[in-house]
């Protein structure tokens, strides 16, 4: 399997931080794979996303290396990013249409009308109702889950080789989530896109991903094929994570009446 990128003993320390947010992380990202990253809150998942997308804040100390197998990717063109906080992906002063048209025209030779038509088609693909009218609306006029989907549309607009999606479906109901998961699968299958999918939902990781990586306390504790990792986790932390997962038969935490 060819790798798209390799993190080699990657260590990341934010300015003024007492401890590294990622420590000694070695991990290969295979071209065309869907890799899910799960782990504790604060374990370094978003830091890994920022490091790959080249978006760490200035003053961050980085050691080790990220090696790309081809020429270094151009953000926005070769790498699409969906941030954990959709507010960070969308400029409040630009309409949704302006975001998408700009995102399409910067890398692609498209006329305005053509870009607009493609923008509407992208919104339809992420199931935004009434895409034509949505183009003229402002980011704050959408619900949390709609904003997440607009951020996904923007990230895939230019047909990136790598999509880094940080909790990109965390505010979606399971029906829309299933549609988005199908869309991401299709992009990987048909367009050869590689997906790094950060999620707190280990069940979702198991359904979507080829492999799952588990982070804990700035370190990679386990990585393996999704089915194996969920069925037979090797590390105690992964087992604890799976055990804490609630399902529709879990004991309820409250009685039937207050």
């Amino acid at each position: 399997m060819t790798s798209l990128a390799t993190c080699d003993r990657l260590t990341v320390r934010y300015p003024g931080a007492a401890r590294p947010a990622l420590a000694d992380l070695t991990l290969a990202l295979h071209a065309g794979e869907k890799l899910a990253v799960v782990g504790e809150s604060g374990s370094g998942k978003s830091t890994l996303a920022r490091a790959l997308a080249g978006l760490l804040p200035v003053g961050t100390a980085l050691s080790g290396a990220i090696r790309w197998s081809g020429p270094p990717p151009r953000p926005g063109r070769d790498i699409g990013t969906v941030f954990q906080d959709p507010g960070a992906s969308l400029d409040p002063l630009l309409t949704v249409g302006a975001h998408l048209v700009e995102g399409l025209r910067a890398p692609l030779p498209l006329g305005r009308a053509e870009a607009r038509a493609r923008a509407a088609a992208l919104l339809a693909r992420v199931h935004i109702p009434d895409p034509e009218r949505a183009l003229a609306a402002w980011p704050h006029q959408f619900s949390g889950g709609q904003a997440q989907r607009i951020a996904i549309a923007l990230a895939i607009a230019a047909g990136p080789h790598l999509l880094v999606a940080d909790e990109a479906t965390s505010a979606l109901d399971v029906l829309v989530q299933a549609e988005i998961v199908a869309l991401l699968r299709e992009l990987c299958r048909d367009a050869g896109m590689t997906l790094l999918f950060i999620t707190h939902d280990i069940a979702l990781a198991g359904t979507l991903a080829d492999r799952v990586a588990v982070l804990h306390d700035a370190r990679l504790v386990e990585i393996g094929p999704a089915a194996r990792l969920l069925a037979a986790p090797r590390e105690p932390y992964t087992r604890a994570l799976l055990a804490a997962q609630l399902d529709l038969a879990s004991p309820r935490l409250v009685g039937t009446r207050p």
Partner: peptide, 14 residues
């Protein structure tokens, strides 16, 4: 439909 779309691990019978 919402219940049917819940990912496997959250179901009663994964």
């Amino acid at each position: 439909r919402l219940i049917a779309a819940v990912p496997a691990l959250h179901r009663k019978d994964p």
